[in-house]
Amino acid sequence: MIKRRLIPVLYIKNGLIVRSEGFSYHHNIGNVVKEAARYNSWDVDELIYIDISREKHYDLRRDDYNVNAYNSIGSIIKEISKVCFMPLTFGGGIRTIDDVSFRIQNGADKITLNTGALENPKLITQAAERYGSQAVVISIDYKIIENQPIVFTDFGQKNTSKSVYNWVKECENLGAGEIFINSIDRDGKANGYDIETINKTVASTKLPTIACGGAGNLEDFVELAKQTNVSAVAAGNIFHFTELSYPRSKILLKKNNLNFR
């Protein structure tokens, strides 16, 4: 039977891996390719990279990591895919079908669409027609407003007034293959997952749902897996700051009889 997935989410800013909090504070963690090799050696289920560079130049800026500088997202993807033999998803700044093709041709298995899909929903269909639905992950950042999860775009700055559940359904109909939801309120806060919204999202779609935002300790993964039917549990910061957090999480999830690899 299919296993549930535990997915590290890595944020890239100007060629460096950063830690994110409330979508605004970013703390440099390290070199993209070295981090990728570390995750590969942990035998992770999958990796999701989101490029959050505002200005599109890529420069490692530091030479103490003993690797070449990467001057484009293309070369970053290329280098990562040489050392990772698990599914790789890349997102951030994708607005056109050419942006999608560029990432897939350089080694991405899937791409995520966020602001780009809301600005131009046809892009979902275009990408699905060219590369298959399985390659199109819709990334949704949301905030709770008057008890309703509302979709935000542009790095969580812009309120679209759209309900998360309606948008999920719309994306499914347009040809998306997976849904990735991330709570802006909980980003970097380590106060646990938003179980209620996650449950309602899973119930609103036939597509696999990946939930992110709020993991503070490994027990949060267990709680999310126990209380919801998410296909995948995702988290960012916890994997950077907790020693061997990935293998330890897997052991803990299995100890709780949860169906992980």
Partner: peptide, 11 residues
């Protein structure tokens, strides 16, 4: 009621 597509690790 399983999600479609099947995406993930299976034995």
């Amino acid at each position: 009621n399983l999600p479609l597509p099947q995406i993930g690790w299976n034995n």
